[in-house]
Amino acid sequence: MKQIGKNFLLMAMMIAASGLAVAMRPTQKVADQYDPVELAKMVPAKFGEWQEEPQNHALIVDPQQKEMLDRIYSQTLSRTYVNSGGYRIMLSIAYGMDQTDTNQVHKPDVCYPAQGFILKNRQNIQLDTEQGVIPATRIEASMGLRNEPVTYWITVADRVVSNGFDKKITELSYGLKGQIPDGLLFRVSSIDTEVERAYAKQADFSRQLLVALTDEHRQRFIGKPTRDQK
């Protein structure tokens, strides 16, 4: 009889916990508080020393990969820019309105190997811009003779997250308020065997692009960076 009572109590606790989890499930999307994101309109085709080069794709994505991207992200934007010296930078931005467990922004660390690239020399950096310091990541991706240094960062709602733990804590803080944060991946890369040159060009490109954005659009891309962000 006592065992039956314990089992009943345990079952009641499990049902209560399940109900509480459903009741606390976030339902309000942070993205609904702002104007809709329209990446193609937000990012200028020409800024600083850079101009969009039409008919050039940053990466060839197979149909299965594209299907996954379309499922995860609300919008994606891929463009190639060239400066007066002929140097090319590939820009890729992916935005998702819903950063729940099944719709997480995928880092290049995952997407590149899925397409056959080998990654090396991963490093976390502090990208200094006119708007503040942005915690970003650099990796070298290679496939055959193609060497592609990459710089990227991820934004969750109003801040750039520097690592997986920081990202999860930020998402949790919104979840406790009943909110579902949006997320954005900003990535720039170039085909270049001179890695340091590539990173320098990518940093300049990113700074010039951020300056060219409106204040509202810039905040969607980098949140609110600070000079003392670590």
Rank of each mutant, 00 (worst) to 15 (best):
T102S: 13
Q131P: 01
D70F: 11
R71C: 09
Y73I: 00
D128T: 13
I125C: 14
R146S: 14
R79I: 00
L59S: 12
Q55S: 15
S74P: 07
G144H: 03
T76M: 01
V82N: 06
L127K: 00
G96A: 02
V82E: 02
R122W: 07
P54D: 04
Q65T: 04
V105G: 09
Y73D: 03
N83G: 06
I134R: 00
Q75R: 06
P135L: 02
P108F: 09
P135N: 08
M143P: 14
P54Y: 02
G132F: 03
R88Q: 10
Q65E: 05
Q64M: 08
S92Q: 07
M143K: 15
D98T: 03
E130F: 09
T129C: 05
A58D: 02
R146G: 11
H106M: 11
N121G: 04
V133M: 05
T76K: 02
Q55T: 03
S84A: 13
Q64N: 09
Y81S: 00
A94Y: 09
Y81Q: 01
G116Y: 04
N147T: 15
M143E: 07
A136I: 06
D128W: 12
T100R: 14
I118S: 14
Q75E: 11
H57P: 01
I89Y: 13
M143Y: 10
L91V: 03
K107D: 12
G85L: 03
R88M: 08
N147K: 14
I93C: 00
P113R: 15
C111H: 13
I118M: 04
T100N: 12
M143Q: 15
I125W: 04
A114I: 01
V133C: 05
M68D: 08
I89K: 09
E130M: 13
I72R: 01
N147P: 04
D128Y: 15
V110G: 05
S142Q: 11
N121W: 12
H106R: 09
G96V: 00
R122T: 10
L119E: 06
G116I: 04
R79A: 08
D109K: 13
L127I: 01
Q115W: 00
H57D: 10
T76H: 04
V133P: 10
R79E: 03
G85S: 02
Y95A: 02
N56W: 00
Q131E: 05
G116N: 10
I89F: 02
P108L: 11
N147L: 14
R79H: 10
Q126L: 11
N121R: 10
I118D: 06
V61K: 12
E67V: 02
Q126G: 10
P135I: 03
Q131M: 07
R146D: 13
